[in-house]
Design a protein around this nucleic acid. Structure first.
Lengths: 343, 343
DNA sequence: TTTGATATTGAAAGCGCTTACAATTAGGTT
DNA sequence: AACCTAATTGTAAGCGCTTTCAATATCAAA
C-alpha cells in the first residue's frame, strides 16, 4: 500500500494534491461535490497530513511550548505547575495545537536551551513562567521574533510584552480589607523576596491599610524565601510585635505562620487571624483551614494558550495584558466563620 | 540580514550546504580545516538547523510523545504523573529530544487523539501510561509502525510490546515477607480493581504466604477502587475478620486503611501492622508513617525515554522489557521500628 | 451575445534539510 | 607510471506540504 500523502489522496479522488490541501484547510472556493469526494477518501483512509511537512511549507509548526526554567529539583511537588500544565494542555487540545514541555532545573540550562528552542523553529510560540522571565531571558526573547506570553507580570518591559496575570493587588486588598472589617488593626504582612506578585500583593495590603487610615508599621513586615519554614521563621520574629492578624503572601508560608503561632501558645483566629494567597489544596486542610485568595493556574494556563495563539495570528508585535480576577475564600483562619472540626 | 539556513552558512564558509549539513551531523569524512571553518561560522551566527525541515528530510522528528489518556479530572494531584513528567522531561533533555505532552481526560478522547498523533508523524515515538494501553489502544498501536513503550506491564501482548515496569511481584513479596518475619500470620490484602500492577502485587503476596506455608484466607482479601475512601471502606469490612496485618497495594488506599483501623479503636502497628506500596510523599507523613515499597516514577520515566530511543534506533520491531527493582522502606506502621512522634 | 468579475482547479515553485550519486583528489600498490 | 581504494566535496533529487500563478469555467450584467 502506497504511503498516504496528499497526492495519493488526490490520485484516488481524481484531483490534484493542491485541491486536497484546500479541502483539508477549509479553503472556500471548492465545488461541493469535489469537496465531498475528497473528504470521503480522507475519511475512508484515515489520512492525516504530515505535520512536519505542513510546518515546513507553511512556516507554522502548530506547536506551543511551555517553558519552565526553574523546576524544583527532584520533587515535582510544585502545586503551581501541577495545575498549570493540565490547563495549558487542555487549551492546546481545544485549539488543536501540540504542547511541547521544556522543564529545566537551572536558569543557566534554561537559557542555553531557550536559545536553541527559539532559533530552531520548533515552536510557533512560547508560554514562559514568570520570575525567571526578567533580566536573563528578555533579551533573547526580544532578539527572536517568536511570540511569547509570560505567566505573571514581568518587572520590566511590561508594556512591551504580553502576559497573563492575576489581580494580585486586588486579591491582597480584599484579604486585608476582610481582616480590617473583622476589627483587626495590627495586621502583619509576610511576603517572599520580591517578585512582581509579592510586590503587587504588598501594594494591595498597603492600599487597604491606607483606606482605613492606618499607617503601616514597618515592624509588622517580614520578607523571606517562600517555603513553609520561611513563614515559620518570619512569624516567630513577628509575634513579639503583637500583631492581631497576619496577611501571608502565599499559602505555603501561611502554614509555617500557623505553626509558629501555635508554638507560641496562641490561637488562630482568636489571638491572631490569618489570611493568605493562592488557595492551594493544602490551604483547605490546614489547621485551621485558611482564608485565602483563590487563583487558578489551570485557568491562567488555558488563557495563556489562547492569548498566545491570538498573538501568533495577529503578529508577534501584538501585546496583550490579561489580568484575571481573584476571589477571597473565607475559611476559619480569619475568624469570620465558626471553626469546625473536620469530619 | 538574510535568514540563516544551511546554504547561507555554506555561502559564508565557501562550501556547499551539503558539507555544512555533514559538519552539523558529525559525518566523519570532512577535512578538519573545513570542519573548523564551518563550525566557526555556526558558532558565530548561532545558527540552529530548522527542526521541521530536518524532520521532513530525515523522517525523524526528534520529538518524543508522552501520552496519558486518563488524567484525573480537574485536579492534577496525581503523584504518579507529577513524578513521571519531570523524569521523562529530563531524559529528553539529556538525549536532546523534545517532549510533547498529550494529556486527555477520557479514553475516548485519548483514542481519537492517538489516531491523529500516530498518523500525523509528529512524534518519533510514544511513551504510554499503562492501564489504558490494553484493549482499546493496542490495535491502533500495532497498525502504525510508531515505536512505543508502555509504562507498566500490559495485560495482553506483553511479549510483543516494550515496557518499563517495576518488580511488583518482588516488591509485594518483600513487604509481606517482612510482616511474616515480624510474626504476623493473618495478613489481609487490599488491592484496587485488577490491573497488572495489582495482579502482580497480589501474586507477590501469595508467594510470600505460600513460602511460609500459610493458606491464603479468601476472607482476608478486599478489592476496590484505588482511593483513600476505597481503602477505608474495604478495611472496615475486613476488621471483623481479625487480621493482624494488612498489605495494601497502594499508599493512597493504605491511608484509608489507617483511618478505618483508628476508628475501630485499634492501634497500628500493635493490633494491626500495615505495609503498602508506592512510597508516595504522603506515606512518610501518614500517622504512623507507612512501611512501603519504594518506586520512582521519575526513574521509570527516564528509562522509558532511553528505551524508546533505543527502539527508534534499532527498528520498531525491537522489543525491550525493563523491570526495575523496588526497595522496602521500613517505617513505623509495620512495628519493626519504634514509633516516634514527629518533631 | 459580449464582457468583466468571480469561482474553480492544476502546475509548479519552494519551505530548509538530508542523502544518494557522481566527481575529484589523495594515497598507496604493483 | 598505471591503477585501485578511500577520502572529500558538490550537485541535485526529493521529504510532503502550502501557495502563488495562470488557466479555465461560470455567471450576472450590459
Amino acid at each position: 500500500m502506497p504511503k498516504l500523502t496528499l497526492s495519493e489522496i488526490g490520485r484516488r479522488a481524481h484531483v490534484s494534491s493542491a485541491t486536497v490541501s484546500r479541502v483539508i484547510n477549509g479553503y472556500p472556493h471548492i465545488r461541493p461535490e469535489i469537496r465531498e469526494r475528497v473528504q470521503k477518501i480522507i475519511d475512508e483512509t484515515g489520512y492525516q497530513p504530515n505535520q512536519m511537512a505542513r510546518a515546513l511549507a507553511s512556516n507554522n509548526t502548530n506547536i506551543v511550548g511551555l517553558f519552565v526554567p526553574n523546576v524544583v529539583e527532584f520533587i515535582f511537588a510544585d502545586p503551581y505547575l501541577s495545575s498549570l500544565i493540565p490547563g495549558v494542555s487542555q487549551a492546546c487540545n481545544v485549539r488543536e495545537s501540540t504542547l511541547a514541555l521544556f522543564l529545566y532545573h537551572t536558569k543557566e540550562e534554561g537559557q542555553r536551551q531557550l536559545r536553541r528552542i527559539l532559533s530552531s523553529n520548533i515552536v510557533e510560540g512560547l508560554i514562559i513562567t514568570a520570575d525567571c522571565s526578567d533580566t536573563e531571558f528578555m533579551p533573547l526573547l526580544f532578539e527572536n521574533d517568536v511570540p511569547f506570553v509570560l505567566m505573571g507580570r514581568p518587572s520590566k518591559f511590561s508594556d512591551q510584552v504580553s502576559f497573563v496575570d492575576y489581580d494580585n493587588v486586588g486579591g491582597a486588598y480584599s484579604a486585608v480589607k476582610h481582616l480590617l472589617q473583622l476589627g483587626r488593626r495590627r495586621i502583619a504582612i509576610i511576603t517572599n523576596t520580591l517578585n512582581t506578585a509579592a510586590e503587587d500583593r504588598t501594594a494591595g495590603y498597603l492600599r487597604a491599610l491606607e483606606e482605613w487610615g492606618i499607617r503601616p508599621d514597618p515592624d509588622l513586615r517580614g520578607e523571606g524565601d517562600f517555603t513553609e519554614r520561611g513563614g515559620y521563621l518570619l512569624m516567630k520574629q513577628l509575634i513579639p510585635q503583637q500583631p492581631d492578624a497576619v496577611f501571608s503572601a502565599s499559602d505555603t508560608m501561611a502554614i509555617g505562620v500557623l505553626r509558629a503561632i501555635h508554638e507560641a501558645g496562641l490561637s488562630v483566629p482568636d489571638d491572631i487571624a490569618v489570611t493568605s494567597f493562592d488557595d492551594l489544596p493544602s490551604a483547605a486542610t490546614a489547621n485551621p483551614p485558611l482564608t485565602t485568595v483563590h487563583q487558578s493556574p489551570q485557568r491562567q494556563g488555558a488563557l495563556a494558550v489562547d492569548t498566545l495563539l491570538e498573538i501568533v495570528k495577529h503578529g508577534a508585535d501584538t501585546v496583550r495584558h490579561i489580568v484575571l480576577p481573584t476571589e477571597l475564600i473565607i475559611r476559619a483562619s480569619c475568624g469570620a466563620v465558626q471553626t469546625r472540626s473536620l469530619t
